[in-house]
Design a protein around this nucleic acid. Structure first.
Length: 518
RNA sequence: GGCCCCAUCGUCUAACCCGGUUAGGACACAGGGUUUUCAUCCCUGCAAUAGGGGUUCAAAUCCCCUUGGGGUCACCA
């Protein structure tokens, strides 16, 4: 039998990073088993702007390279893949349950239900439905219906039963069905409710493994009962623990963004976004915060980095393997090795995976990845000429492992324009230092006359000059500050070569002027 | 509160199923080395079985209790 798994997001306008991890596990399992991965859109709630709300979710899958075999855009034999378009299926299933006496029209008013609940609470006993409508005669029921009295359709839970599932992650879990209130399966407006729609759909889509977040575990007994009542083939369940906020055990939530800004682990991510996004013409919103996939895409993470981190969040291959490509994860993924306890999301660890994969990335791909950032930051303009690409290539090579995220490339601003930020404090320290300007001036004259302007010749020239003057660090630091404005970055010789003789001399000149006025 | 789930370094985890390891790895952190800065890279260090009872020659591992944490209790998904 072919394994079929699904991820069923509601169109909310963003893809939660924890939700992505759950989806990823379902995807990995399907791929590992050579099965199918299906995307179904659970839009039974009110209609929102579908394309706007669904866009970021599909984009997250596309960006990470997690393809779906059936679903929006690709179709499939079991469609449509939007619950809002599957009403007939739900109607038929509801009819079936009514006919077999496993669902009933409940005419209770919300007030009555609330009162029942309050009473149960007061008596400290679990609430279950009173089922008054079940006592109605056939004639009464017909009359109520004819009168147009409002009703909901409830599933008749068989009480007094012990229900068990063998969850692939959590093991054997049991419930007492006597404690389960009869769930509403069709609401007053005729729309199906989640627990019902999902059962109908999982069966019709022939989902073999329902792999979903742990918060659905408590929905499971109802769904099992519903499957049974409908005569469906029972899927196998696997409940993946939720992803917790860094340094906590609480579920990572988009609603807590303000709080996360103060979280020491998240802080860096927010601060980097505050710094970088404006330069790219983006703003930081809850939908584009470290809680969502879009943040990582926009700030220039690699799918390989994010996927590696997500894969290791609650799953491990063995006692030591950390670095895994997507192919390796597909090769080795099993649900048995998913950890039962919730895992705290660790931005530091994600960053270390990212560093690794960025280091591995071939130069050409680094260039392709950086170009959009250079363009967005207006450091280069399109179309990219071969000369321009060649220059970018040299910058990236010189920048080396300092490039962790694609957006880091905008930190090399000084290579692309003559106006660039200057670290005042360090400038004071390195350039305005006693005796340094004179040294710099004299060395500039040397630079103006060196035969060639290459790494080797510059190094030779500087070494010779430094030996003559009996200095070492001072000159190098001053050179760096005056030509790039920052104390960190590629080697000084690389910087000078990339800038070229003319610009280097101009910048030294400008720096000397600046030092004078300081 | 009811129901359900979970519990190993600060964090992610391995060892647990099928009892015997100096409880391993990684991230982070600290220190050192390489380097013209930074980054990289290398070395070293720090650091855990929530508590209590059993069972057993032997318990992180099996059982029970406690504690703690979490999820969920809708005409949301």
């Amino acid at each position: 039998m072919t394994v079929r798994t699904r991820f069923a997001p509601s169109p909310t306008g963003y893809m939660h990073i924890g939700g992505m991890r759950t989806a990823f596990f379902a995807w990995l399992f399907a791929r590992h088993m050579h099965g199918k991965f299906i995307l179904r859109i659970d839009d039974t709630d009110e209609a929102r702007n579908m394309s706007e709300a669904l866009g970021p979710i599909l984009q997250a899958f596309r960006w990470l390279g997690l393809n779906w075999d059936e679903g929006p855009e690709v179709g499939g034999d079991y469609g449509p893949y939007y619950q809002s378009q599957r009403s007939e299926l739900y109607k038929a299933a509801a009819q079936k349950l009514i006919e077999s006496g496993q669902a009933y029209h409940d005419f209770s008013t919300p007030a009555e239900i609330a009162a029942d609940r309050a009473e149960a609470d007061k008596a400290k006993r679990p609430y279950i439905n009173i089922r008054r409508s079940l006592d109605l005669t056939e004639a009464e029921r017909a009359q109520y219906l004819a009168e147009g009295r409002p009703w909901v359709l409830r599933f008749l839970v068989p009480r007094g039963e012990t229900l068990a599932i063998d969850d692939l992650i959590r093991g054997h879990v049991e419930w007492d069905t006597s404690l389960l209130p009869d769930p509403v399966i069709v609401r007053a407006n005729g729309g199906p409710l989640y627990n019902f729609a999902t059962v109908v759909d999982d069966a019709q889509l022939e989902i073999t493994h329902v792999i979903r977040a742990e918060e659905h575990l408590s929905n499971t007994p109802i769904q099992v009962l519903l499957h049974r009542a409908l005569g469906n083939v029972m899927p196998t369940f696997a409940h993946v623990p939720y992803v917790a906020a860094p340094g906590s055990k609480e579920k990572l939530s988009k609603r807590k963004i303000a709080e996360y800004r103060k979280n020491p682990k998240f802080k860096m991510l927010f601060e980097r976004a505050d710094e970088v996004f404006p330069k790219l013409g983006l703003d930081i919103t809850p939908e584009r915060s470290p809680v969502t996939v879009e943040y990582y895409e926009k700030i220039g993470y690699l799918p390989a980095g994010v996927l590696n981190a997500l894969g290791r969040l609650g799953w491990s291959l063995d006692e030591k393997t950390e670095i895994m490509s997507l192919a390796e994860m597909v090769q080795n993924f099993t649900l048995e090795r998913v950890v039962k306890a919730p895992a705290g999301f660790d931005p530091d660890k994600l960053f270390s995976f990212q560093s690794h994969w960025m280091k591995e990335l071939p130069l050409e791909q680094k260039i392709d990845g950086c170009i959009p950032y250079l363009v967005a930051a207006k450091l280069i303009t399109e179309p990219i000429t071969p000369e321009s690409r060649q220059f970018i290539s040299q910058v990236i090579t010189a920048f080396g492992d300092r490039l962790k995220l694609f957006s880091d490339i905008i930190d090399t601003e000084y290579f692309f324009r003559d106006e660039f930020p200057i670290d005042e404090k360090m400038f004071q320290k390195r350039v305005c230092k006693e005796g340094v300007p004179a040294l710099l001036r004299e060395f500039a004259q040397r630079l103006a006359t060196t035969e060639s302007f290459t790494l080797e010749s510059l190094e030779t020239a500087l070494q010779a000059f430094a030996a003559e003057k009996g200095v070492q660090g001072d000159l190098i630091h001053a050179l760096r500050l005056s030509t790039t404005g920052t104390p960190v970055g590629p080697g000084v010789y690389e910087c000078l070569v990339l800038l070229g003789r003319e610009k280097s001399l101009q910048r030294i000149e400008a720096a000397l002027l600046r030092a004078q006025h300081a």
